[in-house]
């Protein structure tokens, strides 16, 4: 009866006693190791593994997420940087090419003892009837109609229309263009006339003159427009023909008119004595 009434209290008391005995035993033996403890540890190990793997899974997922977020941000940043660098590179390249062109012009300026006015090409006209360039300098810069225009390595044409700040350059290849020239090797004189896409033809050279393909054609200086010794082009073909007194000579100009960006205008009024001793390649 007593046990039935106080069963719970007795049981809890037994638990307390068990705990104290366990503590005393552990202290007197000075060792915490026992079979029950080992069993508990054995049972706890898989649970611990599960928790650890869960934690690691979450941690890895989070790290991966953070990594991906960082990667996206880095990617965006790098793309922006690449775009900026490409723009910068393009500017540098453009500057480099411009400096090379200007260097060529400068070398040309040094080769000839003339006063040159540099100008930038601002437009092109490649129509069937008219082949010309527009440049950004005009009478305000000292330009006048009829002045010779050159670029590395030779003649471009001459100024035909000059306004205050703009001028038109009649190209050597235009059919209205006529330039007094001579064959460098034989000193035979002729007139180079524009032939459109085919370059130009040299007329009025007698059939008895010796002209061969590959001969260099240069300005004679007789027209009083182009100074003597400027390169015009190279003979591509010579046709003796059955009739007529003159040779049919085709010339390919040295200057590529479609890629011109800067030119030099020969300021005729400031021309000084030209020796014409420039070695021609």
């Amino acid at each position: 009866m007593f046990f039935k009434n106080y069963r719970t209290v007795i049981f809890v008391g037994a638990l307390v006693v068990a705990a104290i005995v366990l503590l005393s035993y552990s202290l007197t033996r000075n060792s915490g190791a026992c079979i029950v403890k080992n069993l508990v540890l054995e049972a706890a190990a898989p649970v611990q593994k599960v928790f650890i793997s869960l934690v690691e899974g979450v941690e890895n997922a989070w790290k991966r997420y953070i990594y991906l977020v960082g990667l996206t941000e880095e990617n965006r940043h790098l793309k922006k940087e690449i775009s900026g660098l490409q723009t910068e590179l393009m500017l540098y390249k453009e500057g480099y090419l411009e400096s090379q062109r200007l260097q060529k012009l400068l070398s040309l300026q040094n080769e000839y003892p003339f006063k040159f006015i540099a100008a930038r090409v601002i437009g092109r006209e490649q129509a069937a009837l008219l082949k010309s360039l527009w440049i950004d300098k005009g009478s305000s810069s000292g330009l006048a109609s009829g002045m010779a225009v050159i670029a590395q390595p030779g003649v471009v044409g001459r100024l035909t229309d000059v306004s205050f700040h703009t001028s038109r350059v009649l190209l050597l290849s235009d059919e209205n263009s006529n330039v007094d020239v001579l064959v460098q090797r034989t000193r035979a004189h002729g007139i180079a006339r524009g032939a459109g896409a085919r370059g130009c033809t040299v007329r009025y050279i007698s059939k008895i003159d010796d002209v061969k393909p590959g001969d260099l054609i240069m300005t004679s200086g007789l027209s009083n427009i182009f100074p003597k010794g400027l390169l015009v082009g190279r003979v591509s073909s010579v046709d003796h023909g059955d009739v007529g007194l003159f040779l049919q000579i085709r010339v390919i100009p040295f200057v590529n008119f479609s890629t011109l960006e800067e030119i030099l205008v020969v300021a005729a009024e400031q021309r000084v004595a030209f020796q014409g001793k420039k070695p021609v390649k």
Binding site: A18, L23, S31
Partner: peptide
């Protein structure tokens, strides 16, 4: 519950003294 919690705690993480956390 208290006994079991204390005992497991003693075994798993309390150190060398078995029965301390149980008590």
């Amino acid at each position: 519950l208290a006994f079991m919690m204390g005992f497991v705690f003693d075994c798993v993480s309390a150190g060398p003294v078995l029965g301390l956390f149980t008590s």
